[in-house]
Amino acid sequence: MPGIAEYLILGAILFALGLVGFLSRRNLIVIFLSTEVMFQGVVINAVAFARLHHHIDGQAFALFQLVIAAVEAGLALGMIVLLYRRRGTLDSEAWSLMRG
Protein backbone atom coordinates (compact mmCIF):
# COMPACT_ATOMS: atom_id res chain seq x y z
CA MET A 1 0.00 0.00 0.00
CA PRO A 2 1.77 3.15 -1.06
CA GLY A 3 1.89 5.63 1.77
CA ILE A 4 1.62 9.34 1.71
CA ALA A 5 5.27 9.73 0.86
CA GLU A 6 5.07 8.08 -2.53
CA TYR A 7 2.10 10.18 -3.54
CA LEU A 8 3.82 13.34 -2.41
CA ILE A 9 6.96 12.46 -4.28
CA LEU A 10 4.94 11.80 -7.37
CA GLY A 11 3.12 15.08 -6.97
CA ALA A 12 6.42 16.90 -6.59
CA ILE A 13 7.83 15.22 -9.68
CA LEU A 14 4.86 16.14 -11.81
CA PHE A 15 4.91 19.71 -10.49
CA ALA A 16 8.61 20.07 -11.14
CA LEU A 17 8.34 18.69 -14.65
CA GLY A 18 5.59 21.11 -15.41
CA LEU A 19 7.67 23.92 -13.99
CA VAL A 20 10.67 23.05 -16.15
CA GLY A 21 8.47 23.03 -19.19
CA PHE A 22 6.98 26.40 -18.30
CA LEU A 23 10.37 27.96 -17.89
CA SER A 24 12.10 26.57 -20.92
CA ARG A 25 9.71 26.15 -23.84
CA ARG A 26 9.14 29.00 -26.24
CA ASN A 27 5.86 28.00 -27.79
CA LEU A 28 3.08 29.85 -25.97
CA ILE A 29 0.74 26.87 -26.17
CA VAL A 30 3.24 24.44 -24.75
CA ILE A 31 3.91 26.89 -21.91
CA PHE A 32 0.29 26.75 -20.81
CA LEU A 33 0.17 23.06 -21.32
CA SER A 34 3.02 22.73 -18.87
CA THR A 35 0.96 24.79 -16.44
CA GLU A 36 -1.74 22.17 -16.71
CA VAL A 37 0.81 19.49 -15.90
CA MET A 38 1.61 21.44 -12.75
CA PHE A 39 -2.06 21.35 -11.89
CA GLN A 40 -2.05 17.58 -12.13
CA GLY A 41 0.67 17.36 -9.57
CA VAL A 42 -1.25 19.62 -7.22
CA VAL A 43 -4.40 17.54 -7.58
CA ILE A 44 -2.54 14.39 -6.66
CA ASN A 45 -1.12 16.10 -3.60
CA ALA A 46 -4.47 17.45 -2.50
CA VAL A 47 -6.21 14.11 -2.72
CA ALA A 48 -3.32 12.37 -0.99
CA PHE A 49 -3.61 14.75 1.93
CA ALA A 50 -7.34 14.18 2.00
CA ARG A 51 -6.68 10.52 2.41
CA LEU A 52 -4.13 11.20 5.10
CA HIS A 53 -6.42 13.25 7.26
CA HIS A 54 -9.59 11.30 6.52
CA HIS A 55 -11.28 14.44 5.35
CA ILE A 56 -13.17 15.24 2.20
CA ASP A 57 -11.80 18.76 2.17
CA GLY A 58 -8.82 17.86 0.07
CA GLN A 59 -11.01 16.47 -2.65
CA ALA A 60 -13.27 19.50 -2.51
CA PHE A 61 -10.17 21.64 -2.90
CA ALA A 62 -9.13 19.58 -5.88
CA LEU A 63 -12.57 20.09 -7.39
CA PHE A 64 -12.24 23.83 -7.17
CA GLN A 65 -8.76 23.41 -8.61
CA LEU A 66 -10.41 21.95 -11.68
CA VAL A 67 -12.65 25.00 -11.94
CA ILE A 68 -9.66 27.30 -11.75
CA ALA A 69 -7.80 25.26 -14.30
CA ALA A 70 -10.69 25.45 -16.71
CA VAL A 71 -11.02 29.18 -16.25
CA GLU A 72 -7.35 29.71 -16.71
CA ALA A 73 -7.19 27.56 -19.79
CA GLY A 74 -10.04 29.44 -21.40
CA LEU A 75 -8.61 32.86 -20.77
CA ALA A 76 -5.07 31.81 -21.60
CA LEU A 77 -6.07 30.41 -24.93
CA GLY A 78 -8.06 33.54 -25.72
CA MET A 79 -4.99 35.62 -25.00
CA ILE A 80 -2.80 33.35 -27.07
CA VAL A 81 -5.13 33.88 -30.01
CA LEU A 82 -4.92 37.65 -29.51
CA LEU A 83 -1.15 37.62 -29.23
CA TYR A 84 -0.86 35.47 -32.29
CA ARG A 85 -2.99 37.93 -34.22
CA ARG A 86 -0.73 40.82 -33.11
CA ARG A 87 2.64 39.38 -33.98
CA GLY A 88 1.88 36.47 -36.25
CA THR A 89 4.02 34.18 -34.17
CA LEU A 90 3.60 31.94 -31.16
CA ASP A 91 7.07 32.75 -29.89
CA SER A 92 7.20 33.94 -26.29
CA GLU A 93 10.38 35.85 -27.09
CA ALA A 94 8.40 38.18 -29.33
CA TRP A 95 6.93 39.77 -26.22
CA SER A 96 9.66 41.64 -24.34
CA LEU A 97 8.08 45.09 -24.10
CA MET A 98 8.72 45.23 -20.36
CA ARG A 99 12.46 45.16 -20.82
CA GLY A 100 14.76 47.60 -19.06
Binding site: A16, L19, L23, S24, R26
Partner: peptide, 15 residues
Protein backbone atom coordinates in the same frame (compact mmCIF):
# COMPACT_ATOMS: atom_id res chain seq x y z
CA UNK B 1 10.52 28.46 -31.15
CA UNK B 2 9.69 24.82 -31.21
CA UNK B 3 13.16 23.73 -32.04
CA UNK B 4 14.92 25.65 -29.28
CA UNK B 5 14.34 26.19 -25.58
CA UNK B 6 15.06 29.16 -23.35
CA UNK B 7 17.83 28.56 -20.83
CA UNK B 8 17.24 24.82 -20.49
CA UNK B 9 20.07 24.39 -18.04
CA UNK B 10 18.90 26.98 -15.59
CA UNK B 11 15.30 25.87 -15.83
CA UNK B 12 16.16 22.22 -15.21
CA UNK B 13 18.41 23.19 -12.36
CA UNK B 14 15.84 25.39 -10.67
CA UNK B 15 13.02 22.92 -11.13
Amino acid sequence: YDRRSREPLLAVLAG
